[in-house]
Design a protein around this nucleic acid. Structure first.
Lengths: 261, 261
DNA sequence: GTCATCCGGTTCATATGGTGGACCTCAACT
DNA sequence: AGTTGAGGTCCACCATATGAACCGGATGAC
């Protein structure tokens, strides 16, 4: 039985790369075999065979003690080779460091990944109360979270609709406080204000503020954002943080244009 | 007909990842379909189907104008997620920048990739005559080139023999000036001197000098190296460059220990 | 102008290689 | 010493990858 819209050919490659994407966000702890079986929906022998193939290429490595699977050296090598073309973190790293230092809160760089946003890097500030709602490698649908919403609002309307159509099925189950009509209103407010605000919509009390990063041609490269407890993101501090973000976003956008005109 | 030692299962995954590794070093120009057919030894439809699978996962992208294939955004994302575990470039970037600035020559960070060395990053110095014998993504067998030889010489003898056995078949065809007995002598000299020297063995007139980087547990993390024209690497300058390298290597090794004790 | 060549890309009958239910082994708890 | 759940493997079956032959376009030689 053929899926009409399904991928054609090399299915095991798709499955292997699905596993790779599942291991990515697991961070320091890695992923166990059953984790991956559950998350992927594949059978155990299949997962194991694919992991062995990924391990042969060093894209995945297995901790001999815990038996957990982690991203391998080859992922890092490929990333280094891809960075002249796609490197956002290299370009934005200084800006994120300044954001964390100047605000005292936690700063993030986020990239678009299809209809989702993925957090590339997280830099903690000095303020003692820190939200851990967003960690490196975590991904949410576009519009869910401050940096993520900033990117969605920066897309042309046609693309916004395509993204909403893509993510709508997932929203109710995973993000009860979100729905397409709420996202559309969020986009309006974001465009009017010039920055995106997440008023504790994912984790109560954990607020976020973000701005999009655009390339020279106007396309969205990613977003910068800050997270803090609710009390640190009320007016007038919200406006101060927005100004900080705008300043750093301008700096990053200048560097983006310089790199790839 | 089964290969006795061959990989078992998920062959198309191996082939897809072979293509990924072939696209990596092509840098800015990318790779054409025929390039990849030739380099991989696979049939054209097979290569195309695997590339389409890689493109579905955004590990590869195709330039619509040139039709050439490049590393995709997903490679970069995976690299960013793997860098807390494997990030050598982040740790060594400042040291490489100082090396290029202080010496005026071109500086490199290299990593081990099985029996080969792969160049992660290249930083040009101010001196107007620059060798382009080594670029980011290029790989040579361990022992071929200065940084590469520094790594080989830093391995335990048993591992050196395993590497030599692995690469010996390839040497005569691709590197006429190298052979196992020459590499063994090079290793001796490197261990005695404390640094590796490549006296224009790959490209005449293009000399290199390198030192290994060791982790806290003594294993080899990579190498730092410098390349210059022959006249800039004679005594006493050779000793000066070796001292520069030793200083920066010590700095990097300190940071390596701090990151992952 | 046309014939030859090379490139990127696709088709479809064939058979290779991937799949997954059943199974093994080991360690940690009852 | 029995039970659970983890990691890992086996092998008969049939879904899926393979590759010779093909298309269509671009370039260029004469």
């Amino acid at each position: 039985m053929n899926r009409m819209t399904g991928p054609s050919g090399a299915q095991s490659v798709d499955r292997a790369l699905l596993l790779l994407r599942l291991v990515g966000p697991r961070g320091e702890d890695g992923a166990s075999l059953v984790d991956l079986v559950t998350a992927s929906g594949l059978e155990k022998p299949t997962v194991r065979r694919l992991l062995m193939a990924l391990m042969r290429s060093r894209l995945i490595e297995q901790d001999p003690a815990t038996r957990h699977y982690h991203l391998g050296e080859e992922c890092y090598v490929l990333g280094a080779l891809a960075s002249p073309r796609h490197g956002l973190l290299e370009i934005a790293a200084d800006a994120v460091a300044r954001l964390a230092r100047d605000s005292g809160d936690t700063a993030f760089v986020t990239m678009r990944r299809g209809s989702f946003a993925i957090c590339l890097h997280r830099q903690e500030g000095s303020y003692p109360i820190r939200t851990h709602a967003l960690t490196a490698g975590a991904q949410h649908p576009l519009g869910v979270g401050a940096g993520s919403l900033a990117m969605l609002a920066a897309l042309p309307d046609a693309e916004v609709e395509a993204v909403l159509a893509d993510i709508s099925p997932h929203l109710p189950a995973d993000y009860p406080d979100y729905a397409p009509h709420i996202l559309r209103a969020d986009i309006e407010r974001t465009r009017a204000r010039g920055h995106a605000l997440n008023p504790g919509r994912i984790v109560a009390g954990s607020w976020g503020i973000g701005v999009a990063l655009r390339r020279g041609d106007g396309t969205v490269a990613g977003a910068l954002s800050l997270a803090a407890v609710e009390s640190r993101m009320q007016p007038p501090r919200e406006a101060e943080l927005a100004a900080l973000l705008a300043r750093e976003a301008a700096e990053v956008e200048t560097r983006l244009r310089r790199e790839r005109p």
